[in-house]
Amino acid sequence: MACILVLLTATAWAAPDGVARFERTFADAAKAYDENRLPDAIAGWQALADEGQALPEVLFNLGNAYYRHGDLGAAILAYRRAQRLAPRDPDIRANLGFAAQSAGIELPGRKPLAALLLDFSRAEWLGFGGVCFWLLAGALAAWILWPRFRFVARPATAVLAALLGLALAGLALHRDLHQTPEGVVGLAGQKVLSSPLETATPLLAVPEGAIVRMRENRGTWIEVELGETRGWLPAAALAPVR
């Protein structure tokens, strides 16, 4: 077990030269932002995100640059992605709300339990679930090995099993969001159509930056859900929040 922990810890460290390059790119993008060279700032942070460094800080700053540049749809997409990684970050929440108000959209509402579970990121639920898992395994081992202490092991097992169930529920919700992700409308003047045909009846006009739920992908069309309305939007007008 100790060997495995050492191995996991060792692999968590990035190569030093990579870290230096990432930090340099980040700093250059921030400088470009401050100097109002917004395309350069966007390119810098976008490059970091494309290289697998889609961290909350990177996505937040990318959202800011897009917002400043007047690209509300891309800004909301970046903020929303940042929020998936750091759901309780007040800065991300504030700027996302700000951008949503600017775009004239309302952020999707959630049921209380789902909102509570999504207040923790997938990584947090994974970590919490892992800890619960091993503690539960330890409690079960104690239950098996020392019957005398079952009066302690039994409630501990029940509590840990419940906590593990909570973690699994959180992970299931994140998995659901991954499989049927949210999508941000990236183009202005989009209309949700009743069927995947350009001549279909428009059901709803959605502004740029609107957040919809992407239900089904059919070629160049995606079935989306917005409130009570279900309909189709061109795939080119949507970007998934992943």
């Binding site: 460290w13 990432f22 930090e23 980040f26 460094q53 961290l55 800011n64 800065d91």
Partner: peptide
Amino acid sequence: IVYLKPAPARWRNG
């Protein structure tokens, strides 16, 4: 809007 965030304390490793 809220200003930029500082660089992440830890970067992802590949």
